[in-house]
Every structure is written in structure tokens, then in C-alpha cells.
Amino acid sequence: MSEAKGILIVGETIEEKIAPITAELLGCGRKLADELGEPLFGALIGSDVSGIAQELIALGADTVYTADNPILQNYQTDTYTQVMEKMCKDISPRYVLMGQTTIGRDLSPRLAFRLNTGLSTDCVDLKIDPQGKGLLQTRPVYGGNAQAIFAVENKYPQIATIRSKAFSPLAPDTTRQGNVIPVAIEIDTSKVKTKFVRKVKEEVTGVKLEDAKAVVTGGRGIGGPDGFKQLEELAAILGGAVGATRPPCDNAWVPSTWQVGLTGKIVTPELYIAVGVSGASQHLAGCSSAKNIVAINKDPDANIFKEARFGVVGDYKQVLPAFTQKIKSLLDK
């Protein structure tokens, strides 16, 4: 590999549009690229993705490489790793950044091991080491009880995935100029040993959890699916969404897509109401950036009160109905 230069971010799309994480990657990548005085590259992999390359440029990319081919319509480890391996060899970037998403979680380690380089997943901060220009990668560890800074020495590209909502996107600037370069795709099908069969989507009614301005989350303390009906009522009044800790999902009281936390969704609403939630670090990983956390828990020593701004100590069955009623009357006025 020639001398490593520039930063390559791996874009993702959701229903033919740029995924929020892609804008965050470009925001983070642009800053680092300017600091290095090196270019910011974007990669777009998929079918019919070239049309949105210009949007990546508006959001900060200098050059966008597109791997546009029907064979890449659905994410598959073996095809996407081959594409990324080729792009990394062609471009030889200093750093490769991806989102800590269902794709990034799968693709980044596979790519790092194939390229014989180091990777840090789920980073919340990235800095350039003034000596040697290595990437200093900060990531929560031990479920969020601690953070660690990692460095990769003398191996390129240095790869990191970033946590959703940890970095800010730039405001789109449609006057920004950049190049779009299609990459020739040659997939070695003899090395594709997995097959995508189908995707089963869970329908979301109302506001999406990740986008909601208000989130009402229930924990194990809710006790069963019936209690969640009350949380849905409150969420509807607030125009928000319902979330859950892991136990209600594992117990099938609610769909597993409602899980907030380290291995669930990351939410950053204005208002996060945690009901019957103890405040385990792995749960807080998904909600600690909420502007205002409100806790209702019968245990005054519950860890959630260390994170919350406001709290009521009590049984939610007695607290919630009056709370919901009062909120409704305040919002109706």
C-alpha cells in the first residue's frame, strides 16, 4: 500500500435516502480531514445509490466513490467486505470510519481482520495524535462504566465505528464542489458463501423511537405488557414514542426493536421518562445524552436517580395515572 492519506467514511442509506449516521460520519470526518489537511472520501455501496453522491459532497465529502450494482442491493458480509477491501487498497486512506449500525458492526471487524489492521467499535470521540497522526479512539467499555482511549500503531488504515448521535453533522451546503467516481465492481462469487434470503420489517406506528422528542421507557418494574399500555398513553399525549429496557423485550412484553441501550437504540430526546428502570450502565448507554431524564422508581437508591434531573420515588402504579392526567391537562391548555 502506498502512503496512507485521507479519511474514508462508509455511507449508508435508509429507504434510498442518506442515513443520519452518514451525515454524522461526514461531520466528524470533515473536522479530522481539515486538521490533517487531507481529503475526505465517502464510499457509497448499494444499488441505485449514485444519485445521492452529491448529497455526501454537500455534507462535507471531497470525493465520493460509488460501488453501484444490483448485486449490492442488500448488505451481505462477503460482497461488501470485498468492495471495501478493494476501495481501501485503491484509495489507501489513513482512517476508515463507519457507523456502529447493523452494517458497521458486521463489516468493520471483517474488514479490519482482512486488512490486518486495528479497529475500535462504538467510538464517542476521535482525535488525532499530534505525534505520528494516529487516531485516538475513545469508546465506552464495561457497559459504559468506563471509557478507554485506544490507538493503533503503524497499521493502516486505522478503522473505527462511531456511535449514533455522538457526532454532529454539518449543515448541507449545496454549493460545495466534489468528484463522484464510480468504482468497477468485480465480485469474486466463489468467495460469497452467504446468501441474503429476506428481510422482515417490524412496522412502526407513530413516531420512530430514534427520532422522538419525548421517550417514555418502561423497565422490568412495569411487570408485564398491560403496564406498557399506560406508557403508550403518556407517550401519545407527549407526541413521543415508547422504549424499553432489555428485560421487557426479552420477556416479549414489547417488541425487541423497542430496546434502548448499548445493544439497542441510542436516543437523544428532549425528555426521557424512565419508569421502573434501575439505570444499569448498559441501558444508560442508550439514553444518557437525553436532555432531561425523569425517573419514577420505587427504590430511592436506584442508580437511575444519579442520571436523572427530576425524580419521584414511588410505585409507578400510583404515580403514573396522576402524572399522565396532569401532563394532559397542562398540554391541553
Partner: peptide
Amino acid sequence: RATKLVKLFQPVREGKCEIIE
């Protein structure tokens, strides 16, 4: 190792919850 641990630390939490009684 491919990665080096530079630093391990615990982020400080403010933790001032206003308990409503």
C-alpha cells in the same frame, strides 16, 4: 495486540436529581 490501550478512565457524572415529594 493490534490496538494499544492509551488510557482507561471513568467519566464523571454530575448526579443531582431533584426528588419531587
